[in-house]
Design a protein around this nucleic acid. Structure first.
Length: 498
RNA sequence: GGGCCCGUAGCUCAGCUGGAUAGAGCAGUGGACUUUUAAUCCAUUGGUCCAGGGUUCGAAUCCCUGCGGGCCUACCA
């Protein structure tokens, strides 16, 4: 961002001068209210409903309001395009249709101003729905010009830091965030209709658990204690299942102290659901139904274009075990590399890098990320993960090295994660202890022992299926945006230094 | 974190093998035009060429450092 040049101040001074001129004429440039009878869409509908050959909604007077986004001065007639929440509407102002002086005062109207006009809906010679104005009012004077009318605002940083400019200039941005809002409310409707209870749990926590990630740390002055911003919703939601809430969900912001990237923003919106008496297979059926239903409601289709791919979210989604996927995409048979040492040697032979502290499970994860994940373009449930990677998931009957877990992949990246929850408090304690051992070995993302959570499940937790999904990533697919920053209104940026 | 690229008017961009007063379109200002819609036409204002150093007779242009951004890449959803 640069220092304001002289010209910005000159442009602003011109607008301030117009402000004064309006006041001199007894006009309040910031009136407290505006009488709007019709939106842009409503006027368009009126005009389109006119019978063939009739160009004017005779006897009807409408009032519209919006931001001036274009202006075409024709001498004794001027066209002004207004943008409101429903779209654009054209206003035609003619000298002989306005009160004395009102036409001349249009010179005090600039692009970016909020402007109201009353008149008759007409169809122009070219068929454009238009309000033929008999009066106009200033609703709010803008002191800065809006972005360039044809190219709009292209600079990605400006678009994100000053999203209001992006929204006023780019229809695509308005569409993306409208979809975002509707997807979130659609998810709530879907879950509410299935008897889920929406709850809120603490953002400030004494220990941040439930996921493998570094937390943000903050200080609580009143107690003179450290607090951590949550990195997942899981451990509190399970406490509620212990308490007898059989179906709960939370849709909220979580925070991970990590880098920025195409798929990463340090704060993002997570959905987690917990359902007593369900297992991960039942959760998978719910997830594919939820995502396809919400896509259908918001987009009108389950088919999305994403990074050049055509993705169909309609169920059933493909199901494949992690073992089979590695055989398919990596020609790697985990049964032949059942020890940490043999698998490490094989991956090293293939040229994959991994940290020294990586156990067998972490190595499997590395292989999966490298060979399998990029290939999972169509929605896919990858099933049955190594127990080492899943300290909160229940073991698979008959195979204690695996847990009942899936990750959902769409468009080549992970969009969701679910498991049959571990409700055996003795096994859970042992898993936490193993995590502590990993932490000691250098894995600073390993889970911390959470005695309060253990105490909760020691009181008995029913068999439960749990699920988590990054809403932002889902929205990337649904809106066709290739970076997470384009689906977050105000993504994180380095601070601006003056 | 590593590699590559970018930063010029309020906005979108040219100019960059060093050469004199830095350009265009849009926006603004003045003028013509009563159905235009990226309106058109005539005239015109506007620049710490990201910042700071350096090389040079001369730097928007070359070099270094910093700041900001983009793409690729490694790790976290």
């Amino acid at each position: 961002m640069h220092v304001r040049g002289v010209t910005v101040e000159e442009l602003m001074a011109q607008r301030l001068a117009k402000l004064d001129q309006l006041r001199e004429r007894g006009v309040d440039p910031y009136p407290p209210r505006a009488a709007r009878s019709h939106t842009a869409a409503a006027v368009t509908a009126v005009v389109e409903a006119l019978p063939e050959g009739q160009a004017e909604a005779e006897g009807l007077t409408v009032s519209v309001a919006g931001r001036v986004v274009a202006r075409r001065d024709m001498g004794k007639a001027t066209f002004v395009d207004l943008l409101d929440g429903t779209g654009r509407i054209q206003v035609l102002l003619r000298q002989n249709q306005l009160a004395q002086g009102q036409y001349e005062d249009l010179r005090l109207v600039d692009l970016g101003d909020f402007f109201g006009a009353s008149g008759v809906p007409i169809r122009t010679r070219t068929g454009q729905p238009t309000v033929a104005a008999t009066s106009w009012t200033m609703l709010a004077k803008a002191l800065h010009a809006p972005p360039e009318k044809y190219h709009g605002l292209a600079d990605a940083e400006l678009r994100q830091r000053r999203r209001y400019l992006d929204l006023m200039a780019n229809e695509e941005t308005r569409r993306t965030f409208t979809i975002r809002s509707r997807v979130v409310s659609g998810i709530r409707r879907f879950l509410d209709a299935r008897g889920f209870l929406e709850v809120e749990t603490p953002v400030l926590q004494e220990a941040a658990g439930g996921a493998a990630a570094r937390p943000f740390i903050t200080h609580y002055n009143a107690l003179d204690e450290e607090r951590f911003l949550r990195i997942s919703l899981e451990l509190h939601l399970k406490r509620l299942v212990v308490g007898g809430f059989e179906r709960v969900y939370e849709l909220g912001r979580i925070f991970r102290n990590e880098g920025l990237g195409m798929k990463y923003n340090p704060e993002f919106t997570m959905l987690e659901t917990y359902e007593a008496y369900a297992d991960y297979q039942g959760v998978a059926r719910m997830v594919e139904e939820m995502v396809s239903t919400v896509a259908g409601e918001t987009l009108g289709t389950t088919v999305c274009g994403f990074r050049g791919h055509r993705i169909d979210l309609a169920p059933p989604w493909r199901r494949v075990t992690l073992h089979d996927a590695l055989r398919e995409y990596a020609q790697l048979d985990l049964d032949q590399f059942a020890t940490r040492e043999s698998l490490a040697a094989e991956l090293a032979r293939r040229g994959l890098a991994f940290p020294d502290y990586a156990g067998w499970g972490k190595l499997v994860d590395e292989a999966m990320s490298h060979y399998v994940e990029p290939n999972l373009i169509q929605p896919t449930f990858l099933l049955d993960y190594p127990v080492e990677l899943s300290p909160l998931a229940k073991r698979k009957p008959g195979n204690p090295r695996l847990v009942e877990r899936f990750e959902a992949f769409i468009g080549g990246f992970e969009a969701g994660n679910a498991y049959t929850e571990l409700n055996d408090p003795v096994d859970q304690r042992a898993r936490f202890e193993e995590q502590l051992r990993l932490r000691g070995a250098g894995d600073d993302e390993a889970e911390l022992m959470d005695e309060d959570f253990l105490l909760a499940i020691e009181h008995g937790m029913p068999p439960t299926g749990g699920f988590g999904m990054g809403i932002d990533r889902l929205l990337m697919v649904l809106t066709g945006q290739s970076t997470i920053r384009e689906v977050i209104l105000f993504p994180q940026h380095k601070s601006v230094k003056e």
